Amino acid sequence: MVKVYEFLATGFEEIEALAPVDILRRGEVEIKTVSITGNQLVESAHGVTVKADMLFEEVSDWASVDMLLIPGGMPGAQNLKEHEGVRRVVREQVEGGRRVGAICAGPMVLGAAGILKGKRATCYPGFEEYLDGAEYTGELFTVDGNIITGEGPAATLPYAYRILSFFKDENTVSSIEDGMRYTHLMNK
């Protein structure tokens, strides 16, 4: 079974963290939120407290994770960037050929982990300096190999549906897009 973990740090952007969780769970992809704060309760950038599924310290087998996700938000992305354990497991994830995703300010974590050199990536405008050797695309989302990056809050749905497509067939993704009325939005 596919396993996806998403990091949560104090100051995460709500939509960028929770929409991918929602969409992947609708697609029956196992996704768990992982707090790096030492506490399961994590406060978002806008004062919403979320209970993470587990703590960073509780994960014993990072190599069994198919994808790691990094939401944006400030100071959440900065807090993730400063966490040595997060940088280490992200680096190991990519080196192991497994997937990583980051959105908005989150790609700064990938830059700090040294895994964007020579890659194409996007991020929230103004954070390009943190991409450390990547070619900035300015796209809503960019896929380069086993790394996907998203631009910001408005990119969250297409970014999350693209992530779902890594693990589910086109019919499943289309069905969820339609059920969530995303196709209606796109046809306007």
Rank of each mutant, 00 (worst) to 15 (best):
E58G: 09
T149P: 06
M180T: 05
N146S: 14
K32G: 04
G97E: 03
G73S: 07
E57A: 11
F127M: 11
V50T: 09
D132I: 10
R88A: 13
F12P: 03
G150S: 10
G133M: 14
V48C: 13
H83Y: 05
A113M: 12
I15M: 13
D53I: 05
V29R: 00
Y136W: 14
N187Y: 04
Y159R: 06
E92N: 08
I148S: 01
G47N: 14
G152N: 08
R98I: 03
F7G: 06
T172K: 15
I176P: 00
D61Q: 13
V89W: 02
K51M: 14
T137L: 07
R88E: 13
A155K: 00
G118A: 11
E128C: 09
N187D: 12
S44D: 07
A105G: 10
R26Q: 04
E92R: 01
F141A: 05
S175G: 10
E30T: 13
E82C: 10
L157H: 01
D144Y: 14
A45S: 15
L185G: 13
V4D: 01
E14N: 09
S175E: 15
Q40V: 13
M67D: 00
A102Y: 02
K51D: 11
G114K: 06
G118E: 12
K117D: 12
E57F: 05
Q93K: 03
Y124A: 10
L18D: 02
E57P: 03
T137A: 07
P71D: 03
L80G: 00
V50A: 02
V94L: 09
V59D: 06
S44M: 07
E82N: 13
G11A: 10
S165F: 11
G27R: 00
G73M: 02
S64V: 15
T49F: 10
Y124W: 15
G38L: 13
V59L: 08
V89I: 13
K51I: 06
P158A: 13
A52K: 02
G73E: 06
H83N: 15
F127C: 07
I103E: 01
E135I: 14
K188M: 11
E95I: 02
I176Q: 04
D169W: 05
D53K: 09
G97Y: 10
D61L: 09
T33P: 00
L24E: 01
N187I: 08
